[in-house]
Amino acid sequence: MCGHCGCGGEAGTTVLNLETGKETVMRRDLHNHSHDHDHAADHDHQHAHDHGQSHSHGHDHAHDDAHHHHGHAPADGALVELETRILAKNDALAEKNRAWFRGREILALNLVSSPGAGKTSLLERTIRDLSRELRIYVIEGDQATAVDGERIRAAGAPAVQVNTGSGCHLEADMVARGLQELRPSAGSVVMIENVGNLVCPALFDLGERAKVVILSVTEGDDKPLKYPHMFRAASLMILNKIDLMPHVDFDASRAIMNAVRVNPAITTLELSARTGEGLGGWYAWLRREAASVRDAAFT
């Protein structure tokens, strides 16, 4: 949790529109409650500051409170209360995001993994292969640089880069701000590529329909047991880089068994984003989910 890992820091989150080059800083001034933020959209800044009510604008300032201790560590009980408040405020905005997606029949997916598991490569391949049948937009999350966002844009999808500074995960307010820049069309697919991390992203709802956890065969097949919260939160687990199976000590059946052990409802797929093996299953899953979102608008 952020109260323990210290992510967030003083540096502001930046949102870069890769189509226009416009960059917006979402400042989170940890020791100054003047809230002088750079908003591209108009927001009504009405702060009750009783810390029990939601703010009237789209940004989640709970991190300000979590780190606003002037050098004094809170007692364990106070820390738990702060962390609960952080998640509650994030979840409230995530529900707004979810309603926004639902009202536009948009399939929103939260892609999570360890660094280097192949999220960006899978997205690139998916965009190139499905561009004629699915309109795909991407919110690309990293701590720094726009390298992955530029890769996505080069593959043919509109993309917004969200850099979190020292933050180890995306939050619902970052996604909301990214959507203001991205402006996905009705009936499209929004892929949210989270920061590479199997811990904090499990706790932060972004308003997505489903979390998709990507596990590379170059990692341990015990990952689902080591990071149960993430695999429990995911609807789909993708085993990526199966073309490397002959060269690594990885038991795919054991990895799947471990994932099902922590989440009996999880769906699993095996594929290689590099060679294309198994991608048909992933594409079929995407088509079914997109169709379900469209059908849900009439039920």
Rank of each mutant, 00 (worst) to 15 (best):
K226R: 15
E208Q: 10
R261L: 15
R232S: 03
M230R: 03
P228Q: 10
H229I: 03
A252L: 03
T267P: 00
T267S: 00
A259S: 07
N240K: 01
N258D: 14
K223G: 09
R209E: 15
D243R: 04
D222Y: 08
D249E: 15
D251W: 13
E219W: 02
D205R: 14
I266N: 01
V213P: 05
K241T: 05
K226C: 13
V213K: 04
R232K: 11
E208M: 02
P246C: 12
S253W: 10
G207Q: 06
I214F: 01
T268V: 10
D249Q: 15
D222N: 11
A255W: 02
E219N: 02
D251F: 07
M245I: 10
F231G: 05
F204V: 03
A210I: 02
L244A: 05
K226T: 11
I242S: 05
K241C: 01
T267Y: 00
A202F: 02
R261E: 15
D222T: 10
A265T: 12
R209A: 14
D251C: 14
E219L: 01
V262A: 11
I242E: 06
D222I: 05
K223T: 12
H247S: 07
V217I: 12
M257K: 08
P246F: 08
N258L: 12
E219D: 06
P264Y: 05
V248R: 07
V262M: 07
L215M: 09
V199W: 13
V213H: 09
L203F: 15
R261N: 13
D222F: 07
N240C: 04
T267G: 00
A210Y: 10
A252V: 10
K226W: 14
P201G: 00
D221F: 14
